[in-house]
Amino acid sequence: MGEAFTALGINLPQLIAQVANFVVLLLILRFTLYKPVLRMLDARRARIAEGLGAAEEARAEASDAQARIQAQLDEARGQGQEIVANAQQVAARLQEEARAQAERDREAAADRSRQEIQLERDRAIADLRAEFAEITVTAAERVIRQSLDGEAHQRIIEETLAESELGERS
């Protein structure tokens, strides 16, 4: 065993030295490589996760806003349609009213004209009657050359007229 150790050059001080070397190197690398690099990698990972989270949030917010805008648009469109429908309704009503008014006006005008015509005709008839009566009186005077009092005359005329077609008509 001892010979094998000598042949391979195994000696305790160098073995211990190499163990110490490793420990020293481990501590150095921990300080110069592992800690800073791992910290940086973690920091970057956290940053990226944060960025992705923020992007996700922004995207959610954007889609939220989009939905809100869409809702507002829909609402506005609905309102617009309602307004238009109302307006159409009002317009129809107005039109209806206008037409009814016009109808009424026309009716009234027609009534008035009819009344006027009636009045005119009544007046004309009255005039005609008066004139006819006068003419008749005159004619009768002439025919009978008999003076009768006015009242008797008038009564006779009236009776005559009542019997006649003109009187029946009124």
Binding site: N11, Q14, Q18, N21, V24, L25, I28, T32
Partner: peptide
Amino acid sequence: PLNVSNTLISAWAAMIILAVVTFLGT
């Protein structure tokens, strides 16, 4: 008590290189 062998010198060289290079790099 330590026999400084050529492998030990090489080990120290490797350690120094690792330490210096990583220190400068990070």
